[in-house]
């Protein structure tokens, strides 16, 4: 560094004086503005600031996003009609999208976030600074319009291929066409497969819930018993066959109740499964007859009390009742409780 002692001192002195002036200046300016505010009404504090954005490395066709924060004095609003519309700005720049949204600063006055998306169509031969021109805006409070300006934005456009191919090759060789392709059928086939699977599962569940054959979960013991008792109709006076028929129906009762059903349990079971409650007296009669037939050792008398035809009729009615929807009736006690709060 070639610098004489005097010039060094002089330059340092100059710098310190300048620094002092810089420190003092804002205070002075602030006082000036305050004075102006007192004399000339509210100060115009509108501001348009560009948000930091990447300003380099834009290729042909790339999108350049320019965002600006706009802050207006209280009572002022942007004039929508004065906003820029998508258009061809010049030979190498298109404005393709403009979005206006409420800004982040909303303490006082109104603020906006203006987003403008440009597309660069400059075919650069070498990296080169390109300017997006300043965009005029207009704000108004209903009386006095005010003009604002979104500052110009400079970005560097860059080439992506050599000026002259250094390794030979035809510089005019075009990239190939996009060829028409048939629809891919896979998504539809997959959707159909999945939906069909789900549908089948739902159908299976429905079959189980509705008790459709052969998916019925609970067998129908009375219907089975009725089929087993059918030969009895041909021999209504055959005592051993009658006894066997009684046993068959007992097994059906056991199966329907889920446990061995005795005479004393009948009333409780009829309440529990209301499909059979209409038949409770006949069922009780059957159990009485059965007791007489097996423990009273007088099957003939039992056959008189409950003839074969009546036995078959009972089996038929039971088989019919079991097909019904097992909707229970609310217990009488519960109804009484609801009726008398």
């Amino acid at each position: 560094m070639r610098c004489s002692i005097f010039s060094c001192i002089a330059s340092r002195l100059g710098r310190s004086i300048a620094a002092g002036a810089r420190r003092g200046l804002p205070r002075l300016a602030g006082a000036g503005i305050a004075l102006l505010a007192l004399t000339a009404g509210p100060v115009q504090a509108d501001s348009v600031t560009l948000l930091p954005a990447r300003a380099f490395g834009y290729f042909l066709g790339d999108l350049v996003r320019v965002e600006a924060d706009i802050r207006l004095d209280p009572g002022f609003a942007l004039v929508p009609a004065a906003l820029p519309q998508p258009h061809k700005v010049n030979g190498y720049l298109d404005l393709i999208r403009v979005d206006l949204s409420p800004g982040p600063l909303t303490a006082d006055g109104s603020s906006y976030r203006l987003t403008m998306v440009y597309q660069n169509f400059y075919g650069a031969l070498e990296p080169r600074a390109m300017e997006i021109p300043a965009v005029p805006l207009r704000a108004t409070n209903g009386e006095a319009p005010r003009d604002l300006l979104v500052p110009a934005f400079v970005f560097t456009a860059a080439p992506f291929r050599e000026l002259v191919p250094s390794r030979g090759g035809n510089p005019m060789a075009l990239r190939p066409d996009i060829l028409p392709r048939p629809y891919p059928l896979r998504p539809e086939i997959e959707a159909i497969t999945v939906a069909a699977l789900v549908g089948t599962l739902a159908l299976l569940a429905l079959a189980l819930l509705q008790g459709w054959r052969p998916f019925t979960r609970s067998q129908r013991p009375f219907a089975t018993a009725l089929r087993a008792l059918a030969p009895l109709a041909a021999a209504p006076t055959d005592v051993p066959a009658y006894r066997a028929g009684l046993i068959t129906l007992h097994r059906a009762f056991d199966a329907a109740a889920g446990h061995r059903l005795l005479a004393d349990d009948v009333a409780a079971w009829c309440r529990h499964d209301p499909r059979y409650s209409d038949l409770s007296s006949e069922i009780a009669g059957f159990f009485t007859t059965s007791r007489r037939a097996f423990f009273g050792a007088e099957p003939a008398a039992a056959m008189e009390a409950l003839p074969t035809a009546d036995l078959l009729a009972l089996a038929r009615r039971l088989a019919h009742a079991e097909r019904r929807d097992p909707r229970p009736r609310p217990p009488a006690a519960a109804l009484a409780a609801e009726g008398a709060p």
């Binding site: 042909l60 066709g61 030979g91 597309q119 075919g123 080169r128």
Partner: peptide, 28 residues
């Protein structure tokens, strides 16, 4: 094309070829 698909590189490449055949950026 690039307005519909800004990232279609083949279109950028071929447009670059066309732009070098006839350069019409008068202002720049």
């Amino acid at each position: 094309t690039l307005r519909h698909a800004p990232s279609l590189w083949d279109a950028k490449y071929n447009l670059d070829i066309a732009l070098r055949l006839i350069r019409d950026f008068p202002e720049i």
